[in-house]
């Protein structure tokens, strides 16, 4: 399919609060193509999560246009165009891991046989085969987050939206999950929108890095990564990687994001 997967034109979103309007997003223009891995980076309040939620039709933009697969976000949500991964795994404690992954499939009305096949498939994809019968509390935080990614992948939407999915994990686990996420992306060819506040994470994962800054939330820089698709972890010591990370840091500083 030709055309962008996600396209924002002059997008603005203002929350009306007791202290007056808050401009969470202002004049955001961005085009995301099929198979892109796009990271949104910036400090708190820069609107990166709000933008992701707007794409998911969990927030309503107040200005401009936003299309997802050529539809409005609302239509895209109703046609189940994306899987969403939240910062916390949010697994249901009363369901097993397999039961949690099956949840969207039950709601969307897949047949029992289909459910079983898909659950097995995605659990394998996130390297959790054999853990289907365990309850969430029996798994580590990293494994729980992998299960929540499996849940988002289960119904095979083309778009995966991830809101700081590894933010609560320690760095060693995070590195491993980053590596696995890249492999998964390579195997599935999904379009991924990924919110983070870690510069190395953004540079390591993305084909494009969107640098944002707050008050009002806006895009200050969009960097197309020249890194190859195959990325071993030690690519992070390469000159190219450091150069991109530097540009991201400069972008954040230019937006007065980190007032040190």
């Amino acid at each position: 399919m030709a055309g962008p997967v996600i396209e924002a034109r002059g997008l603005g979103l203002t929350f009306q609060t007791g202290d007056g309007p808050v401009h969470a997003l202002k004049d955001v223009n961005l085009t995301i193509g099929r198979g892109d891995f796009v990271s949104f980076i910036g400090p708190s309040g820069c609107g990166k999560t709000t933008f992701l939620r707007a794409i998911a039709a969990l927030e309503q933009p107040t200005e401009g246009t936003l299309t997802v697969n050529g539809m409005t976000p609302e239509q895209a949500r109703k046609s189940r165009a994306y899987g969403y991964v939240f910062q916390a795994a949010g697994l249901y404690p009363w369901r097993t891991i397999a039961g949690n992954v099956r949840l969207p499939l039950e709601i969307m009305g897949f047949s029992k046989v289909e459910q079983e096949a898909r659950v097995n498939n995605v659990l394998q994809l996130v390297d959790l085969e054999g853990f289907g019968k365990k309850f969430p509390w029996q798994l580590s935080g990293g494994m729980q987050q992998r299960a929540s990614i499996a849940r988002a992948l289960a119904f095979d939407a083309d778009i995966l939206l991830m809101d700081e999915p590894f933010g609560a994990l320690d760095e060693i686990v995070r590195d491993r999950l980053n590596e696995e996420l890249l492999k998964l992306w390579a195997r599935t060819g999904k379009t991924i929108g990924f919110v983070t506040h870690s510069i190395p994470e953004a540079v390591y994962l993305s084909t494009r890095i969107v640098v944002m800054s707050p008050r009002p939330g806006r895009i200050t820089d969009v960097i197309d990564s020249p890194l190859p698709k195959e990325r071993p972890l030690d690519i992070r010591d390469s000159a190219e990687f450091i150069a991109i990370a530097h540009r991201v840091r400069e972008g954040l500083r230019a937006g007065h994001s980190y007032e040190v």
């Binding site: 998911a56 969403y84 939240f86 249901y92 949840l103 039950e106």
Partner: peptide, 26 residues
Amino acid sequence: MQLDLLRTYNASRAATFWKLRLPASM
């Protein structure tokens, strides 16, 4: 977050009740 997750599945109110609210209330 739990409710948003079900919104992303476009879950009906009935599904939200049976799959989330009722078990969570036990």
